[in-house]
Amino acid sequence: MPNGRDPRIDFFRGLALIFIFWDHVPHNPLGQITLRNVGFSDAAEVFVFLAGFAAVLAYGKIMQRDGYWMACLKILRRAWVLYVVHIFLLALLMGIVFFANSHVETRDLVEEMGLTHFVTHPQQALTDELLLRFKPNLMDPLPLYIVLLAGLPLVLPMLVRKVEAVVAVSLAIYLLAPWMGWNLRAISDGVWYFNPVTWQLLFVLGGAAAIYSQRPKTAETRPLLRQPLFVASAVYVLVAGVITLSWRWPEIHDAWMPAALSNWLYPISKTDLSPVRLVHFLALAYVTAKLWPGAGWTQNRVAGEICRMGRYSLEVFCLGVVLAPLADMINAMANDTVAMQLTTAVIGALLMAGLAAWLELIKRLDRQPRAALHT
Rank of each mutant, 00 (worst) to 15 (best):
V197T: 14
S213R: 07
R222M: 03
G181D: 08
W179K: 15
N183K: 02
Q214M: 11
M180R: 14
V235M: 12
G207V: 08
M180K: 11
Y193T: 02
A209H: 02
W182E: 03
A186G: 06
P223R: 00
A208I: 05
S233K: 15
G206H: 09
T221D: 02
P228N: 02
K217G: 06
V169I: 13
Q200G: 07
G181K: 04
T218F: 06
V231L: 14
L176P: 14
S233Q: 13
V166Y: 12
A234E: 12
V169C: 14
L229Q: 06
T218G: 06
W179Q: 15
V167W: 06
G190D: 01
A209E: 01
T218Q: 09
L225P: 00
L175F: 11
T198V: 05
L184G: 01
N183Y: 01
S188P: 06
V235F: 11
R215I: 10
W179V: 14
V167I: 09
K217D: 15
Q227P: 02
A232D: 14
A210M: 07
L176N: 02
L238V: 14
V235N: 04
V235C: 15
A168L: 12
N183R: 01
W179A: 13
T221N: 03
E220H: 05
K217V: 12
V169R: 15
F203W: 08
I173W: 08
V204N: 12
Y174G: 02
L224H: 12
A210D: 13
W199T: 02
N183A: 03
A210C: 07
I173V: 15
N195S: 10
A234I: 10
S170I: 09
T198D: 05
